[in-house]
Simulated assay, not measured.
Amino acid sequence: MLLAAPLTLLALFFLLPLLTVFGQSFAAPDGPLGTYARVAGDSALRYSLIYTFQTAAIVTLAALVLSYPVAFLISRAQGRWLVIGMVLVLVPFWTSAVIRSYAWLVLLQRRGVVNEIMLALGLIDRPLRLANTDLGTHVAMVQIMLPFMILPLLSAMRGIDPSMLRAAAILGANPWRQFVNVYLPLSTPGVGAGCVLVFISTLGFYITPALLGGSSPMIAVAIEQQVSRLLDWPLASALATVLLVLTCALFMLYERLNRRLAGAGEGR
């Protein structure tokens, strides 16, 4: 009985819309599978899917590289410095992603702050095209996704027992071996959780790619174009369904690998 209310809400506001989108993807004039045939046969849509997953992988990797040392420093902080570090990580959540995307558009435009600084320093002779490029899109998306990577890493790192590193040092391990053989494996749950969270969130990004989009639209932008400009709801629903299926498949693969790694760790 206690689960009746939440299950009803989940069915009404989550499962029903998903089923509606899934059913609408078959409502094509050229047959039930016509929209999926168009997705498979349209090179632009296929490239948009590939570009979306490629962008998600780049953003996830960049966010991990930038977030790991930040999370490490915050995890070692104590007292006031720990509070300051946590506040700096959480402050971006208080600002809308739309505002941050527009801020990056202002920073990266031809007469924006970035170009003006490089011109003043003599690093470039003329303004560079940074907005509406893949690079600008990746930079903005990485900045927006950093907190989502830092927090899982920080949670895992705060749970690492410092005596493990001291024991490795007593046994003769240098700092590099302490990190590679002890600290990094113990922090892998945070790495995995952060990468999955950032990767899946990036797949559905719309605002930032729409404002700073580069050579090809991400799939969320392509879906919006099909709905608002071309009024092709069946094709938009098919694209959304394909993206959802691929995302679920990747998540299931991650869960399977995670269970295998956990089992191997317990076996050792």
Rank of each mutant, 00 (worst) to 15 (best):
G136N: 03
M164K: 09
V139I: 14
V242N: 04
H138K: 11
L246T: 02
F251A: 14
A210D: 08
V113Y: 13
Q78L: 04
G79K: 06
Y254H: 13
G85W: 01
Q54I: 12
V180R: 15
L82H: 13
L15N: 07
L73F: 13
G265K: 15
Q78S: 09
T247P: 00
S96T: 10
F148Y: 15
P32F: 10
D42V: 02
F93M: 08
F199Q: 04
G136H: 09
F53T: 05
V182H: 10
N174C: 05
L2C: 03
M164W: 12
T60L: 03
I219V: 14
T241K: 00
P217Y: 09
R126K: 14
L123R: 10
R80M: 07
G213S: 02
T20Q: 10
A238H: 08
A140F: 04
V114Y: 02
I200E: 01
Y51P: 09
T188K: 07
N132W: 13
A236S: 01
G79E: 04
D134H: 12
T52D: 01
G204C: 07
I117T: 12
P29I: 02
S215G: 03
V89Q: 03
R110Y: 08
T60K: 05
C195H: 04
T202K: 12
A63K: 06
L231Y: 15
M164L: 15
T188I: 11
W104M: 05
G79Y: 04
L105T: 02
P162E: 01
T52F: 06
M252E: 12
A173N: 03
R166G: 09
I50H: 06
R256E: 02
T35G: 09
G194L: 02
M118Q: 14
L165F: 05
A167S: 11
T208D: 00
T8Q: 11
F148W: 12
L128E: 01
A71K: 03
T60P: 01
F205N: 06
Y47Q: 10
T8G: 14
M149D: 03
L66C: 06
R260W: 11
L211K: 07
L82V: 00
I150S: 04
Q54P: 04
G265Y: 08
F148M: 13
A220R: 04
E266A: 15
L90E: 04
L123T: 10
S216V: 14
P17V: 05
A193W: 02
G192T: 13
V39R: 11
L184I: 11
C248F: 11
L64R: 10
V182R: 06
V83D: 06
L33T: 09
A5F: 10
A56E: 11
A167Y: 08
S215R: 13
A131D: 13
I219R: 02
G31S: 03
F26G: 07
A249Q: 01
G122L: 10
D125W: 14
M149N: 01
G263T: 10
Q225G: 15
P152R: 08
P69Y: 05
